[in-house]
Design a protein around this nucleic acid. Structure first.
Ligand SMILES: Nc1ncnc2c1ncn2[C@@H]1O[C@H](COP(=O)(O)OP(=O)(O)OP(=O)(O)O)[C@@H](O)[C@H]1O
Length: 715
DNA sequence: TGTAAACCGGTTTTT
DNA sequence: CCGGTTTACA
């Protein structure tokens, strides 16, 4: 079982009795160590499989790890270790023990869309929707507080000169939490937050989980946040059987509260800790590794570490610049087709910085008949048609769910509009009865037309619920099929009969096929949806090119990797470029992307990119200059390209806006001075180049100023 | 009162 | 460009 490990990995697998940290670069076999360690613990019968808890970064990584462990153990595996993300683990704990914090165990998990709706509502009611407290800003702040384990009560009592404190935020935070509580909901950050609180406040519950999970293993430890760090510490505090791996150069989630100090301080936190290093990379060619190592050296805030390989020299990285993103996608498609002679589609991945980039890639790949699968993103479950169907399912499962009632009711429209809905909601709140109950008990107070419509809708839901009860297998699939017909939803799409509506119908059918294999109950399905965001929404395409964001590529490997959009503004992203720490994170992100490749790397960039329907001129990414030039082959498209990425001269006579003429170096958090309003603080920046707008709070009052014209200076 | 059509505002990255 | 929200009209 341990044959394929090198001496360091072997030593690590056999190490017991004290905490262990492995720090090592990309592709050095950290994840491989974890899977073998789990298998070894089981094989040696040190404990039963179900007493092992392994934490991965994504659900996909978790299921991959499960498969690996199973392969290693073969037949002898009857019970399984608990392998999941922090969030899924917390959901598991809270479904069992949330009641110990006086909250029901059958909470629902709000996704970001529902969070947004709640916040928007609060801002509207407080009459501050048009101020600097944008919902994005507020949500990011609340997330930050929760990750730092600051409850809204704690927050409210912070001294008013505390850096984090803001009186308005304190109010919003409280209202937001109360909103969640009254809907019996928690958000993603709450999962971690409440689990930590539960363990801290309730030693008995903690002890139960400490006994249940005698071994704790964590992948990607460099990207744990404060709450996750505390969770691990609590779980391991008795037995100290904690084994973590990570790479500080792959810390790419600090914007979400991930704190690289957690890995740097591991030895301080666990006094007996042993630290091991892996230095041999088994994944990539010498050229790829040289390129990646050369790039990451440019980070100042970094410990040096070795990473070498015995693999072949390999091909140079290829850089190709095109006129626009369409041609970029065409180049990638064409390259994929020519690579197809030697490689399979499944060996190829295309990475990009922002989800918005995937659109063009999808279109062009589809037009060239290249099969692809889109991984991750807020893809599937946030599409409006999927949400509509989910609303029906939620309502069938729980008729008291007013939110679901309203959404289902208005798709397709049933002649009941905003006014009636508001009345119903108010009545529901006043009487403590759900809208569904009100209708059933004839307690509504509306015009006949609306009442009739509501009645038949309620009957529809009742009948569907009855139908569901009679089913025995493939229950959700059959239910969805039936509701599509009876609700008129399918008819609505068929009448529209546009390509888009047909697409929507396809997506809904996807729900049917997702739920098919496992004989899922409605409740289990609905409860876990927020957690399974990463379903590949393409139907079991085995041999297909993978499209995903760079963040999603973490931990994965492909024979051939394309990196699209190697441009200033995209990588590094314009929001990061004036903040040194953020810029270094962008560089790490580039490092992660490069090191996904085993054999070949293609980097592309464009001259002009269409953003919000406007053409923007784009310089090539500074990171391209930082990659050792002898690993890089720059393909020339036209003679206008003179060899150095920054010396490109745009020769076309086409009209375009030269949008990069103006620039600034203000950042969020900067103190600034204005002629009229005096001193203020920038709390948000939007737009780019000449359209940059700063949101500045002057002495209580907030202003949005265009930096190109505004007379503000840094102080 | 409900719905369709204009309108406005927002782009990192995700569990 | 897209989706959520406001507005104008039936
Ligand atoms: N001792 C070994 N001998 C041969 N191949 C190995 C060895 N260790 C790991 N590998 C291979 O190297 C590749 C990278 O391993 P793994 O994914 O475990 O690295 P990692 O350190 O987790 O990488 P990353 O930090 O990029 O996620 C895998 O294909 C793995 O099978």
């Amino acid at each position: 079982m341990l044959k394929n490990l090198n001496p360091q990995q072997l030593a690590a697998v056999k190490h017991f009795g004290s905490p262990l940290l492995i720090v090592a670069g990309a592709g050095s076999g950290k994840t491989k160590f974890l899977t073998h360690k789990i298998a070894y613990i089981i094989d040696q019968k040190l404990t039963a499989p179900q007493h092992i808890l392994a934490i991965t970064f994504t659900n996909k990584a978790a299921s991959e790890m499960k498969n690996r462990v199973q392969e290693l153990l073969g037949e002898q595996c009857t019970e399984f270790p608990f392998i999941s993300t922090f969030h899924s683990f917390c959901a598991y704990v809270l479904r069992k023990d949330f009641q110990s914090l006086n909250r029901p165990n059958n909470f629902i998990i709000y996704d970001s869309y529902e969070q947004q709706k709640l916040i928007k509502n609060i801002l509207k009611n407080m009459d501050i929707s048009k101020t600097s407290y944008t919902y994005n800003f507020v949500l990011a702040k609340i997330s930050e507080f929760k990750n730092k384990l600051i409850s809204y009560q704690d927050y409210a009592t912070l001294p008013s000169n505390h850096i984090l404190y803001d009186q308005v935020l304190a109010q919003i935070y409280e209202k937001y939490q109360q909103g969640l509580i009254s809907n019996n909901a928690i958000d993603f950050d709450d999962m971690l937050f409440y689990t930590v609180v539960l363990f801290q406040r309730n030693p008995l519950v903690l002890a139960k989980y400490q006994t249940q999970f005698k071994y704790l293993l964590i992948d990607e430890y460099q990207d744990t946040n404060h709450a996750q760090y505390n969770l691990a510490k609590l779980l391991a505090s008795q037995h100290q059987n904690i084994y973590v791996v990570g790479d500080f150069d792959q810390n790419i989630y600090s914007w979400r509260g991930a704190n690289v100090q957690n890995i740097l301080n591991f030895e301080k936190d666990y006094a007996q800790a042993k630290v091991l290093y892996l230095e041999q990379n088994y994944r990539s060619t010498k050229t790829i590794l040289k390129a990646a190592n050369g790039l990451i050296k440019h980070n100042q805030q970094r410990k040096e570490k070795k990473l070498w390989t015995e693999n072949a020299e390999g091909e140079p990285l290829v850089f190709y610049k095109t006129k626009d993103e369409k041609q970029e996608a065409e180049y990638i498609a064409q390259k994929i087709l020519s690579l197809k002679e030697k490689s399979e589609y499944q060996d190829i991945a295309v990475l990009y910085r922002t989800n918005a980039q995937s659109r063009v890639l999808e279109e062009i790949l589809a037009s060239q008949k290249i099969p692809y699968k889109l991984m991750g993103g807020f893809s599937f479950y946030s599409r409006s048609e999927v949400k509509d169907i989910m609303a029906y399912l939620r309502l069938i499962y729980n008729q008291a769910d007013n939110q679901a009632f309203i959404r289902a009711l208005s798709k397709p429209s049933r002649g009941v509009g905003q006014t009636s809905i508001t009345k119903l909601l108010n009545q529901s709140q006043a009487t403590n009865l759900s809208i569904y109950e009100l209708i059933k008990q004839n307690k509504t107070n509306l015009a006949t037309k609306q009442t009739q419509s509501l009645k038949s809708f309620a009957t529809l839901i009742f009948e569907l619920e009855q139908y569901y009860q009679t089913l025995t297998e493939d229950k959700i699939g059959k239910l969805v099929k039936s509701l599509l017909k009876k609700s008129g939803y399918q008819q609505m799409l068929e009448i529209e009969n546009t390509p888009i509506s047909l697409d929507r119908l396809e997506n809904i059918k996807e729900i049917i096929s997702i739920t098919k294999n496992e004989n899922l109950e409605l409740g289990d399905f609905l409860n876990n949806i927020a957690l399974i965001s990463e379903i590949d929404n393409t139907v079991n395409l085995d041999n297909a090119v993978t499209l995903m964001t760079m963040h999603n590529a973490k931990g994965l490997e492909y024979k051939i990797v394309f990196i699209a959009g190697m441009e200033e503004g995209l990588l590094p992203h314009y929001r990061s470029k004036n903040i040194p720490e953020a810029l270094e994170e962008e560089r790490r992100l580039c490092y992660v992307s490069l090191t996904r490749a085993k054999e070949q790397l293609f980097l592309t960039a464009v001259d002009d990119r269409l953003i919000f329907g406007e053409l923007w001129k784009r310089p090539t990414s500074c990171f391209l200059d930082e990659i050792p030039q002898d690993t890089l082959l720059i393909m020339e498209e036209e003679k206008s390209y003179s060899g150095h990425p920054h010396s490109i001269v745009y020769k076309s006579k086409e009209k375009f806006k030269n949008n990069q003429a103006f620039d600034h170096d203000f950042n969020v958090g900067d103190k600034v001075k204005h002629k009229i309003w005096g001193e203020g603080i920038i709390h948000n920046l939007e737009g780019i180049a000449e359209k940059s707008i700063a949101h500045i709070r002057f002495n209580g009052e907030s202003k949005k100023l265009m930096l190109k014209y505004a007379a503000v200076t840094k102080v």
